[in-house]
Design a protein around this nucleic acid. Structure first.
Length: 558
RNA sequence: UGGGGCGUCGCCAAGCGGUAAGGCACCGGAUUUUGAUUCCGGCAUUCCCAGGUUCGAUCCCUGGCGCCCCAGCCA
């Protein structure tokens, strides 16, 4: 892992709260938790939550638990549990011994449900789901009490025990809290505590036929684990009164507090689990780890670094106002990290042959090229020079536009680490396409960018000796959508899919050192961007590189 | 005209009654064998609007306006 960048860390409301709690002696150590439901792969939005929870614990000398909120076996799988653990670790965080499952507390939760029944604060409901909905009322009208609301404690106890024993089919009964059917907060209108689900659970197997709802599990689990600050996203804000109602009415061992922050919205992508699932299912992307996906596994495969993702999460801050972060902020964090750490190399993506007519046909020279222009400690490597080289077709224009200072007919350009060359002629095929370029070099121009008569050459381009190049496939990725907010309501997000989100180039020519590249090493292909081998598809004999992100390019913007 | 939350520069975001931090973006200029990097400079008399309290308000009060969340036996 590369060193953490110096990220300007600003204050936020959570740090203020924790500071106060520590100063006042309310807590001497804070305990947070990252509580994903294992029903899918983690994405960049989860990364924000992970960085907040683990980051706060790290900064204030506390600890952070990883807890699987596995209360709905219908949607959860071991595959997701494994992947989530791996993603959190990849991001650079460690939960140590503190790995928990909400399901480890199912017996305790059940006992607490009994407690509520005995206090006449919970009852078994026989109404159907539809009836419950009808009785719940609307946002502007109060609900009605269920005819089963005032069953005896004994009857409730018996019924609930039968539910647990698996004596009733799914959906026939639920356990409800007896709170207030007229509450302006819908969450308090006798919320469901338990539902019957004859489904195997990825962590506790088939031990249970009833499963607690999120609301009945989350706060109590926080209390059991000794969580001090239970940090979640804003949509749970209206659940907080219920969260507190359980803590008030149950003999829980500690008193956690819930705080909410605004979830991450990123432009040019979608983040909802349903849509991500659909992209995979429809084959629009190549799986959850497609390099264009906003998933952690996708970002990882693409070549983003954990340090870059962390610095991104740090730089966007934590607040309570709905915000949209431009995807370019993330890309900028990736560049900032890779610029420091990535060794440079030369690669020609769209090869155009350039023949240096005045260079000896059999001569091969070896040049030493710096691996990093500002970091001599990163060493040098040998590159080969010969009469025939490849240059990028984007670096030549037969009829140059204004401001173009790369190669033109009659014009000269500096070959990076090599000579100044001049283009003297263009050869075209029968179709009129340029097939090769001819030119001459200045043998005395190896150092600097000045010609023999003292003129300064403006353009410097990358190149690869054709006799020494290795061929590779390079995949250029772009944003998955061409609209900043494909997720906006009303229309189908798929209509905004960017048809050019991946471009595959088959005959790229790379400098020879890249043939033995380490699969994990991120390179800067000079003047083009950052690249790394695709960890899934690249083979020693069949190199495949992914473009992680382009370089900033003020010329291309014009 | 049910309840809750939010509104500070193009995008984020500090600020907590004493006279608008920072980052990104953008615009200049310098250095550079990457049109990269780095560096230097510029970039809100103003904090959704309107009143009020105060010597003084982005911060307090009142009234508007706008946006988000809640009617799963999902989390």
């Amino acid at each position: 892992m590369s060193d953490e960048q110096a990220v300007p860390t600003t204050n936020n409301f959570l740090k203020t709260i924790i500071d106060d709690d520590l100063k006042s002696g309310k807590h001497d150590k804070i305990v947070t938790r990252f509580p994903p439901e294992p029903n899918g792969y983690l994405h960049i939005g989860h990364a924000k939550s992970i960085c907040i929870n683990f980051g706060l614990a790290r900064d204030f000398g506390g600890r952070c638990h990883l807890r699987f909120d596995d209360t709905n076996p219908a949607k959860e799988e071991q595959e997701y549990i494994d992947s989530i653990k791996e993603s959190v670790r990849w991001l650079g965080f460690d939960w140590g011994e503190h790995l928990y499952y909400a399901s480890d507390n199912f017996e305790q939760l059940y006992q607490w449900a009994l407690h509520l029944i005995k206090q006449e604060r919970a009852y078994v409901e026989d109404l159907s789901a539809e009836e419950i909905r009808a009785y719940r009322g609307t946002l502007t009208e109060p609900g009605k009490e269920s005819p089963y609301r005032n069953r005896s404690i004994t009857e409730n106890l018996n019924l609930f025990a039968s539910m647990r024993a698996g004596e009733f089919p799914d959906g026939t009964r639920v356990l409800r809290a007896k709170i207030d059917m007229a509450s302006p907060n819908m969450n308090l209108r006798d919320p469901v505590l338990y539902r019957i689900l004859h489904a195997p659970h990825p962590h506790v197997g088939d031990a249970w036929k009833i499963y607690p709802m999120y609301d009945f599990a989350h706060g109590q689990t926080d209390a059991i684990e000794g969580i001090t600050h239970s940090i979640c996203t804003l949509e749970f804000e209206s659940h907080r009164p219920l969260y507190e109602w359980f803590l008030d009415n149950l003999p829980v061992p500690s008193r956690p507090r819930q705080y909410e922050f605004a979830r991450l919205n990123l432009t040019y992508t979608v983040m909802s689990k349903r849509k991500l699932h659909e992209l995979v299912q429809l084959g629009i992307v190549d799986g959850w780890d497609d390099p264009r996906m906003p998933t952690i596994v996708g970002i990882k495969r693409r070549g983003y670094t954990p340090a870059a993702v962390r610095s991104f999460c740090e730089s966007i801050g934590v607040g309570r106002s709905d915000s949209w972060i431009d995807i370019s902020i993330l890309e900028e964090c990736v560049r900032a990290d890779l610029n420091e750490t990535a060794p440079r190399a030369m690669a020609v993506l769209k090869p155009l042959k350039f023949i240096i007519d005045n260079y000896p046909p059999d001569l091969v020279e070896e040049f030493q090229a710096a691996n990093h222009p500002q970091k001599p400690e990163m060493g040098t490597r040998t590159i080969f020079f010969s009469r025939e080289i490849w240059i990028d077709s984007d670096d030549f224009m037969e009829e140059p536009v204004k401001g173009f200072f790369r190669l033109t007919v009659g014009g000269e350009v500096k070959l990076r680490f090599g000579y100044i060359v001049k283009c003297t002629g263009v050869v075209k095929d029968v179709a009129g396409n340029i097939s090769e370029l001819h030119g001459e070099y200045d043998p005395a121009s190896r150092e600097g960018i000045h010609t023999a008569d003292g003129r300064k050459v403006k353009g410097v381009i990358h190149w690869v000796s054709s006799a020494h190049a290795v061929t590779a496939e390079v995949r250029l990725f772009d944003r998955l959508f061409n609209d900043p907010n494909p997720d906006r309501g009303g229309s189908d997000y798929k209509q905004f899919l960017n048809p050019h989100s991946v471009e595959t180039l088959q005959s790229c020519r790379l400098e020879a050192t890249l043939s033995s590249a380490d699969i994990e090493t991120r390179y800067q292909f000079e003047r083009q961007g950052y690249f790394r081998q695709d960890p899934k598809d690249s083979l020693p004999g069949k190199l495949i590189f992914n473009r992680i992100v382009t370089l900033r390019d003020v010329w291309a913007k014009k």
